[in-house]
Amino acid sequence: MNIFRLAGDMTHLISVLVLLLKIYATKSCSGISLKTQELYAMVFLARYLDLFSDFISLYNTVMKLVFIGSSLAIVWCMRYHRVVRRSYDRELDTFRYWILVGACFTLALVLHEKFSFQEVFWAFSIYLEAVAILPQLVLLQRSGNVDNLTGQYVFFLGAYRAFYILNWIYRYLTEPRFTRWISCVSGLVQTALYADFFYYYFISWKNNAKLQLPA
């Protein structure tokens, strides 16, 4: 564990907590893409198949349970909670993500570290996470004004993978046999997808204005 990875995990945790706060405090999920939440639930379920088979550390196991539990809870809340579900932007959140799921799974069947059930699903989860934010970014552009908590949620979600890139550079420089091309390349693509959001987020922060994404 290094400081970059810890910062990344904490930033990721903060993004989940901000989202839970937004839904719990405002009893609303307006501006949040259910499709991105469902993609993230798939990402965690596919990536943490080793949850019960490999014990790495208490921290690792607890964080995996937190990420799986929170993503499923948010999906359940947005689908079935009688108050929250009413504020879901159903007609704006129309990204056909099964194309993304199919493409990522096909890529994982071709490009993986080892051809085993767990490894293919792990590679699938890495590729899927890289594009999971797309429905959310599309929804933000369509829904115009973005409330603060939603903007902060997307910001922290993007920032965590940027910390992970620093972690991979650090591990590459300090650990003799560390190579993790699948994670690194996907992580770069993932962070790059946030580039324009980060730009508009910085502008809104600098001008102390509402976050506006161009349509």
Binding site: D9, H12, D50, D54, I56, N60, E119, R180, S183
Partner: peptide
């Protein structure tokens, strides 16, 4: 220590 399939990250 090398983990079962090197996945010690979240």
């Amino acid at each position: 220590v090398e983990f079962s399939h090197g996945k010690d990250e979240l």
